[in-house]
Write a protein that binds this DNA or RNA. Structure first.
Lengths: 158, 158, 158, 158
DNA sequence: TTTT
DNA sequence: TTTT
């Protein structure tokens, strides 16, 4: 039973193919980034677009589904909870913080035909291997220097 | 018009009194931290409590309201959008990132009397007493003539 | 796996004590009504209050919890899905429709002490006092070294 | 300022083209039905699909947008609040109730190309006239015998 | 009455 | 880094 509410709901497009890892404890864990776009008026009344990037983490069976069916550019609905975890910067030992959305529900939006996602067999054949270049996301965890959590017992599914 | 969805909904308690600033452009801006508590079972099946801390930012008129009525310990509902902004670490010039919830709606929960919060006399004098007379409830279920479902197999839990 | 989204989130006060039934199939099922209050401006710009009544249905274990801890007047958060079911008016055999919220999550709000609700001694002894010490907040903003944004034009209200 | 929460969030497909009316007070008002689909396991553990139909009401500028861009089959995200309004059954004068979602935000999902929605000029050319056969929705309001609200001052935009 |  |  929860004693509060910690809920995030996003609709956006994947910025990269999902990256799957299996933790040392045998849990499937997928991460990807999600862009949400928003129009707003600036100080001069001109319409502007703002893009916000979110780091999504998915565990267990839902992780397998994400790995199998999602790819870069796909539009999805993601529901989850906010979680900020800390890690030590290996360069100087300082504490750093990263906020992620731990995903508990995911919906693929639009039809597969438009997503360029081909047949599901294709999708499933490219799940794990394709995600080698996450050198772009501004978040520490995807930098080579940032240790991923993998044994963190506090970071278990839910 | 938005082109995506970026929504956060929290129920928790303030970790500190709201801090008000007025920006150089004259905008009111309030920040506070919010703790959401959650119970979950650990690997051994034991019930654990997890507290997550969130950084809330509020602007304009809603900021004034937060500044005036909220204080440390108060339970609130906060709705907003996720925003990650970057800043340069003055120590070494490195880019750092902070994720905040930009609040667009706020509800004070519980009665003012329990919160120990400020000028609560008006609030407490009109709280929820008025809603206890649902003798005007418009739905059939309260009419004796409406059969309740009890065997409807389609209406199972979920 | 869901293929769409059907979500309702309410914060309001119970209009009556929960009514528990056990279905013929042995399932626990609780119903109650919930009032949500909203302020709005009418055509003349005067502030008005609108109360909306909702019919809540809860199943299984969560039903037992509702039955045990909730009572008329109590403030709660309810999450669920919309469901419209039909029934035959016994007077004339016409089809009628009732829309309910099938509750999948519930949070008691405010402290038990204010709610006048039952066995609240444990609850009140551990309520929200524990969350007032955010001295472990992991976020930069509480560190003196983190500059706040104040002039960022992109960070205007919304 | 609201004093509670009354929020509905749906992702589904339109069951019919939006129907536009202009109220006697000059307000634009659009209605359509939305189907949300859900998979669930029945008592025997078999995967079943459940479809829930929702009645959506949109006012003012957002109504115009819905009228112009949405059509039957289109996938959308709808956010709004629950509202149950009553009307008198003309056959026998009995009070009847209809629950609707008063929409405050709408997002078109998937690309227009997949929706078969053609160019926006086509869409806009068919907005108002095409919706003559709503004789299907199980809700009273669309039956010829059910008076639509049009002058109800309580049912103003928001 | 939608969609996959 | 996404999308329209």
């Amino acid at each position: 039973m929860a004693k509060g509410l910690n809920k995030v709901m996003l609709i956006g497009h994947l910025g990269n193919d999902p990256e799957m890892k299996v933790t040392t404890s045998g849990q499937s864990r997928v991460t990807f980034t999600l862009a949400t776009n928003e129009n707003f008026k600036d100080n001069n009344g001109n319409l502007q677009e703002r893009t916000e990037w979110h780091r999504i983490v998915v565990w267990a069976k839902l992780a397998e589904i994400c790995s199998q069916y999602l790819k870069k550019g796909r539009q999805v609905y993601v529901e989850g909870r906010l979680q900020t975890r800390s890690w030590d910067d290996p360069k100087n030992g300082e504490k750093r913080y990263t906020t992620e959305i731990v995903c508990s529900d995911m919906q693929m939006l639009g039809g597969a035909r438009e997503q360029g996602g081909g047949t599901s067999s294709e999708s499933s054949s490219q799940g794990y291997e394709r995600q080698q270049s996450p050198h772009d996301y501004p978040s520490p965890p995807t930098h080579p220097s940032v240790p991923m959590l993998e044994n963190d017992k506090d970071d278990l599914p839910f």
